[in-house]
Design a binder for these strands. Structure first.
Length: 433
DNA sequence: TTTTGAGTTGTTCGA
DNA sequence: GTCGAACAACTCAAA
């Protein structure tokens, strides 16, 4: 687990602890091998039943198998569920038994399942278990101490089930109408922001699915926006199913021809990208939002990823690792699947010649520069006309905005046109096998 | 087995 | 300023 996700896990555990104690139970934390610890706790507590949600990924499935066997030997009843996904990956197969690699037919298959099982209500009361010894959230050392870089994360996020429900209700009430267009505007609050909650199991995709269906059924006009929103849940699902089939998704090119791709080693460029100092305002804004808050707007994720992989020709795995370490919603499926998608080697991937132009993307989706001004404050005084390409400002315009290019804000580390041409040339090498 | 139609999110160029 | 075509085949899923 990456650094930001570890921090987020600590908040999630605290929220769960509070919630459980409010209904008469307590949270027991232990660290180590699950196949040993869970049966151990079952024995110490005299448990009659153990419940969990399955994790449809290679190492976890084997672990769950071992846990179930050990528990059955103790005479404990085992109950497992697919609550972390809309459908179990083993149930969505082509005729020849393979996982689907194109999103549209995949999503149609999920939709064809009809109404998904409805989530069960939470228990009102739980009985306290016996007093067993365990770790505390602090002793797990999930949070950074020296230096404490989590200040921005703390300002941004509230963890836990009730926060997740509040966010969902807020989104359905004020974000669903117009979602299909607003979701692309990084300067606005047009997305659901549910991804960290989904990542840590504080809300289930089925809860989200049912809530959105219900909202759309109540107001016909929302049907299009609700479809768009649900298809985003579909992409999470698609990526997880892909991971189920391809356990090494984060390290291996799905398209074998990409093994021959001429990636560049460029520590300085990688660092400039990570720190938000590429000289392209929309890219830098995204990278700084990520560092500060642990998330990045969806539209901007595509722009910064395209920039790293195409303009800088740096291996998508470097980007995947940085996102993995810095995202509070880092998901084992979505993160590598989407990086591969941008790079052009993934499932249903973007064609190789699609190179995002960071200036056009900025002008199109952040036309008034709200997003850039928020995350790159040293450019805040520039007029909208120049906010996405400060290097084209006249000396006087830069001076009156208090900017010295190369000092207060970097020059572009690569020229767009040159970068694009170099990328297209590099991709020639992996074309057609 | 073969065929057919389709496939998240763009950019550039020239008419 | 607007619009359509080119960019490049390839692979997938289902008939």
């Amino acid at each position: 687990m990456g650094g930001a996700a570890r921090w987020r896990l600590a908040q999630s555990l605290r929220a769960l602890e509070t919630r459980l104690s409010a209904i008469g139970a307590s949270l027991l934390l232990r660290k180590g091998q699950a196949a040993r610890i869970i049966p151990e706790v079952a024995r110490e507590s005299g448990a009659s039943d153990v419940f969990w949600n399955e994790i449809a990924q290679a190492p976890h499935q084997a672990i769950e198998h071992d846990i179930a066997n050990a528990l059955r030997e103790l005479g404990v009843d085992v109950h497992s569920f697919d609550g972390d996904l809309l459908a179990a990956p083993a149930t969505i197969r082509t005729k020849d038994g393979r996982g689907l690699r194109v999103f549209t037919p995949f999503w149609r298959r999920i939709q064809a399942m009809g109404a998904l099982p409805y989530p069960l209500p939470a228990p009102r009361r739980l009985h306290p278990g016996p007093n067993l010894s365990g770790e505390t959230v602090e002793s797990l050392k999930l949070e950074p101490a020296r230096p404490d870089w989590a200040g921005g994360l703390r300002e941004t996020w509230t963890a836990g089930e009730s926060a997740a429900q509040k966010r969902l209700q807020h989104f359905l009430k004020s974000g669903l109408a117009g979602y299909a267009g607003e979701r692309d505007r990084p300067g606005r609050d047009g997305t659901s922001n549910l991804s960290p909650h989904l990542r840590f199991g504080e809300i289930s995709p089925r809860q989200v699915w049912h809530a959105a269906q219900f909202a759309a059924a109540e107001r016909r006009a929302l049907a299009g926006d609700a479809d768009k929103f649900l298809s985003e849940l579909g992409w999470r699902e698609f990526c997880r199913h892909l991971l189920f089939d391809v356990p090494d998704l984060a390290t291996r090119n799905l398209q074998p021809s990409f093994e021959a791709f001429p990636w560049r080693e460029d520590e300085a460029a990688l660092r400039a990208w990570q720190r938000g100092r590429t000289g392209y305002p929309i890219v830098d804004a995204g990278m700084r939002q990520l560092w500060h808050t642990g998330v990045m707007h969806n539209r901007v994720r595509m722009v910064v990823a395209s920039f790293l992989v195409k303009h800088l020709l740096i291996d998508w795995r470097q980007g995947e690792q940085w996102f993995w370490d810095t995202l509070v919603d880092a998901d084992a499926g979505s993160n590598p699947a989407n990086w591969q998608w941008v790079a052009g080697c993934g499932a249903d991937a973007a064609p190789y010649f699609r190179v995002f132009n960071p200036v056009l993307q900025g002008e199109k989706f952040d036309p008034d520069g709200t997003y850039v001004r928020r995350w790159v404050p040293e450019l805040a005084q520039l007029p909208n006309r120049l906010i996405h390409h400060p290097w084209e400002a006249a000396p006087l315009e830069l001076a009156s905005a208090g900017i010295t290019l190369g000092k207060t804000y970097p020059q572009p580390i690569i020229d767009h046109r040159k970068g694009r041409e170099r990328a297209l040339k590099a991709y020639e090498k992996v074309r057609a096998g």
